Measured scan of single mutants.
Amino acid sequence: MEQGTVKWFNAEKGSGFIERENGDDVFVHFSAIQGDGFKSLDEGQAVTFDVEEGQRGPQAANVQKA
């Protein structure tokens, strides 16, 4: 798993970007967020995640709040 920080997340659209510790920013969709309840992330929040190849390039998967 990688570690990173939420660069921004739009709760209305359900997507945003995570700033990786090593590498380019990666797209995140709300469906990749693990946990119960409303799936959203806050700017500056620390997260851990896997990276998968999506239709438009790398994207975060199995996102967990650190």
Rank of each mutant, 00 (worst) to 15 (best):
Q34F: 10
R56W: 15
N10P: 03
G16H: 01
E43A: 15
Q55S: 14
A66Q: 13
D24F: 11
A11S: 11
E19L: 13
G4C: 07
I18H: 01
D24Q: 13
K7H: 06
E2I: 12
R56V: 07
N22A: 08
G57K: 03
E52H: 11
N62D: 02
A32T: 04
Q59N: 05
T5M: 10
S15P: 03
Q34A: 11
V28D: 04
R56L: 10
S40V: 09
D42R: 15
E43Y: 13
I18G: 00
K39R: 12
E53G: 07
A61K: 12
A61G: 06
T5C: 13
N22E: 09
A60Y: 00
F17V: 10
E12M: 13
G16L: 01
K13Q: 10
S40T: 15
Q59V: 11
F49P: 01
G14Q: 03
A61P: 01
N62S: 03
E43N: 12
D50Y: 15
L41R: 00
H29G: 04
R56Q: 10
K13T: 12
V28H: 01
K65R: 09
Q45K: 02
A11T: 11
R56K: 11
G35Y: 07
K65Q: 10
S15H: 15
Q45A: 09
G4D: 00
W8M: 05
Q34E: 10
F27W: 09
A46N: 10
A66K: 12
A32I: 00
K13E: 08
E12L: 14
F17T: 04
V51L: 12
A61M: 11
L41A: 01
V26H: 02
E19Y: 12
E2L: 14
D36H: 13
Q59I: 11
P58F: 09
V28E: 02
S31H: 07
V26D: 02
G44K: 06
Q55C: 15
S40Q: 08
K39C: 08
D50L: 13
M1D: 08
T48K: 08
G14S: 02
S15M: 15
E19A: 14
Q3K: 15
Q3C: 15
F30T: 04
I18T: 01
Q45T: 09
D36C: 14
G44N: 05
A46M: 13
E12P: 04
A61Q: 10
T48H: 08
D50C: 13
E2Q: 14
Q59Y: 15
S31V: 04
I33N: 01
F49Q: 02
A11L: 09
D36M: 10
T48C: 12
R20S: 06
Q45W: 10
S15N: 11
G37I: 06
K13F: 09
Q55L: 14
I18P: 02
A11I: 11
G16Y: 02
N62V: 02
G16M: 02
S15C: 15
D36G: 12
I33V: 07
G54M: 06
I33K: 00
Q64Y: 10
G57P: 07
H29M: 04
D25C: 14
G44A: 04
S31P: 05
G44D: 04
D50Q: 14
I33R: 00
H29L: 06
F17M: 10
M1T: 13
T5E: 04
H29Y: 04
F27T: 03
E2W: 15
H29K: 03
V26R: 00
K65I: 14
Q3M: 13
V26T: 01
V28R: 00
N62I: 02
V63W: 00
F17P: 01
V28P: 02
R56P: 07
I18Q: 04
S15A: 11
D24M: 11
Q55I: 14
N62Y: 05
T48D: 04
Q64P: 02
A11Y: 11
E21Y: 10
N10D: 13
A32C: 07
E21S: 11
D24N: 12
E12Q: 14
M1I: 11
V47T: 03
G14I: 02
G23V: 02
G4R: 00
V51I: 15
D25V: 12
E52D: 07
F9I: 02
P58K: 09
Q34D: 08
G35T: 10
D24P: 15
D36F: 11
G57V: 06
R20G: 04
G44S: 05
E53M: 15
Q45E: 14
W8D: 04
D24Y: 10
G16Q: 00
P58Q: 09
F38I: 08
Q59R: 09
G23C: 08
V28Y: 04
N22L: 08
A11E: 07
F30I: 08
Q45D: 13
T48M: 11
F49T: 02
I18R: 00
F30C: 08
A66L: 15
E53H: 12
M1P: 12
F27N: 03
V6Q: 01
E43I: 15
S15F: 15
E53C: 15
G54Q: 06
S15V: 15
W8A: 03
V51R: 03
T5L: 10
G4K: 00
N22V: 10
E43F: 12
S15Y: 15
Q59G: 03
A32M: 05
D25F: 13
E12H: 13
Q55E: 12
F9Y: 08
Q64F: 10
L41N: 01
F17G: 01
V51D: 02
V47K: 00
G23E: 06
S31F: 03
E52P: 00
E21G: 09
V6C: 07
D42W: 14
E52T: 12
A61V: 14
F9R: 00
D25T: 11
N10C: 12
H29W: 03
G44L: 02
E43L: 13
P58A: 08
A61T: 13
K65V: 14
Q59F: 13
A11N: 11
G16D: 01
G57H: 06
H29E: 04
E52G: 07
G57I: 05
V28I: 08
E53I: 15
P58W: 09
K7F: 02
K39P: 06
T48R: 10
L41P: 01
G4I: 03
E43S: 14
F49K: 00
G57L: 05
G54T: 13
P58G: 05
N10W: 08
R20F: 06
R56S: 10
A66T: 13
V6A: 02
G16A: 03
I18S: 01
G35I: 09
G16K: 00
I33E: 03
H29D: 05
N10F: 03
R56F: 15
N62R: 08
F27C: 05
K7S: 05
G44F: 03
Q55K: 14
R20M: 08
E53K: 10
A60C: 03
Q64V: 12
S15D: 05
Q59S: 07
F9V: 04
E53F: 13
A61I: 14
T5D: 02
Q45G: 06
V26Y: 01
F9W: 15
I33D: 04
Q3R: 15
A11G: 08
E19T: 15
K39G: 05
A66W: 11
F27D: 02
W8L: 04
S40H: 09
A46L: 13
